[in-house]
Amino acid sequence: MSLISEERIDRTESLSGFAGVEDYWALLKPRVMSLVVFTALVGIVRAPGEIHPVIGFVALLCIAIGAGAAGALNMWWDADIDARMDRTRIRPIPAGRIAPGEAMVFGLLLSGASVLMLGLLVGFLAGALLAFTIFFYAVIYSMWLKRATPQNIVIGGAAGALPPVIGWAAVTGTVALEPLLLFALIFIWTPPHFWALALLKKRDYERAGIPMLPNVAGDDETRRQILLYSIVLAPVGFAPFALGMTGWLYGAVSIALGALFLVFAGQVYRKREGDAAERAAKHLFAFSVLYLFLLFAVLLCEGTAR
């Protein structure tokens, strides 16, 4: 259970009533939500068959709300460690604008509503996958893995990788190889992305007591793992083209971006001291976001052009 100090609970309770709409919006982690919506949209667009635009919109809305609900539950559970990290102490709960209990109820309510809506209005498999995703992120990742093992974001990355599979299932009612490849792409991408950030925010994580890889195994081992995952990521990114699921544009872009990812990961591996090391980690983190966005953008373009 989150160990929130009595003092802070008193403060949040006394401030109850001040929370604005924007605080509840912040509980939904809108930036994460936008990535989830984008990858789910790619799953919907690339799936064979037809979906009525209104039903497609409902599917995306439910996936977005479900992702936001998982984010709210994560913020409720992690309020104590959020309060100890510079990056997260301005969040609504540690800042005292929303009481932890309110956030929990908000998250549970939205979880139930989004799963029910997706299951009844779009499809049962999509609804079940969304329920599993929320459970995996809120319970398996937030409540268990995050504080227990440096492999937290490796295994927990499965939750962030599922949206394209849910999108696909919303259209077809099944799961096929292509969405599973998209799942694998995000799953393998997650560790180097987060470990680049963890190298930069090592002290923050240390203060919060989160066993991120740099804090447990050291910076050098983290750099080695980043490089290894990047070596695996390049062919996984290319696989949809190699298996004939995409056009030449995606093939070319995935090769170029995969090579660039390896270059940035190689710089993180080589540059280990001072500002150069920090810059390399920053570059890899920034590029990793661009990498995933561009690959999925090309998939989206090719999907809509079919």
């Binding site: 709409v21 209104v54 409902v58 809305l61």
Partner: peptide, 30 residues
């Protein structure tokens, strides 16, 4: 300040509920 916050929250809830009513109606037709 608390009254203002409550008013804004109430308005947001009203908008969300209105949106859901319209959405469910349209989905039913579809």
């Amino acid at each position: 300040e608390q009254k203002k916050s409550r008013k804004r929250r109430s308005l947001a809830i009203a908008l969300v509920l209105t949106f859901l009513v319209i959405l469910f109606y349209v989905v039913t037709i579809v």
